[in-house]
């Protein structure tokens, strides 16, 4: 017995590809969850009841059930309805909508916390309520929740490992495939863990940059 990391380098290409897919699915889902979060927040706060009620159900579905189940439902379940999505797309939709609901909760609170004088000042200039929301209130709300949204995005990166089960060959699946051939689970899972950590550090650096950029505009 004993650990033997010497088998790892021959799978470097496969692992690197896994890293790239992990980053791709994380970035795509993050973008969807960000804009989806803003849209959901606006629906939750301002849409007429006919839109708000189905949205509530939808939000409950995404917050109250396991993400893994949601991915199964989107990837395998929708096929029965004639919607056959590629694994990557199903993964982005699942992760993106799931985290959009969480982001939306943050953004809703932040919208309500923006000083009332901001809306008043915008309306006084002649902006409509919608214009004031888009130009004045929502940008400030989003700016205020960049740090907690960043935390959600780090959780998203980690949860992206779940899409391995629907066959997206991201980092976790790449490691599993290598393990299948070499029977070296510790080595490959450990290397995968280190790679996740490195991606995480990169993400945190990007988030810190975004936060710093919004520093003056508070």
């Amino acid at each position: 017995m004993g650990l033997d990391f010497s088998v790892v380098p021959s799978y470097a290409d496969a692992l690197l590809l896994g890293v790239i897919w992990t980053i791709a699915i994380t970035v795509a889902s993050a973008v969807l969850s960000f804009f989806g979060g803003i849209l959901f927040a606006v629906i939750a706060l301002y849409a007429p009841l006919v839109l708000r009620l189905p949205f509530r159900f939808f939000a409950w579905l995404f917050m109250g059930t396991p993400l893994l189940l949601q991915l199964f439902l989107i990837y395998f379940g929708l096929v029965e309805l004639g919607i056959d999505l590629p694994a990557f797309v199903a993964g982005v939709i699942g992760l993106g909508l799931h985290f959009a609901v969480y982001n939306s909760e943050l953004i809703q609170t932040a919208i309500l916390a923006v000083d009332k004088g901001q809306m008043e000042a915008a309306r006084t200039l002649g902006l409509s309520r919608g214009q004031a929301l888009v130009r004045v209130v929502i940008p400030q709300a989003v700016r205020d929740v960049i740090p907690p949204i960043g935390n959600n995005m780090i959780a998203l990166l980690k949860d992206s490992a779940l899409v391995s089960v629907i066959g997206v060959s991201e980092l976790t699946l790449s490691a599993q495939l290598a393990i299948g051939r070499t029977y070296r689970p510790f080595e490959f899972y450990a290397v995968a863990a280190v790679l996740y950590y490195v991606i995480n550090l990169g993400m945190e650096a990007v988030l810190r940059r975004i936060e710093r950029r919004t520093q003056l505009s508070r």
Binding site: E120, A121, T124, L125, L127, S217
Partner: peptide, 21 residues
């Protein structure tokens, strides 16, 4: 009202400048 308000400027006690701009 949006048309009317364009003709009426208002200045507030707490300025209400848009901090993100």
């Amino acid at each position: 009202i949006n048309e009317m308000r364009q003709q009426i400027g208002m200045v507030f006690q707490h300025f209400n400048l848009f901090p993100h701009l």
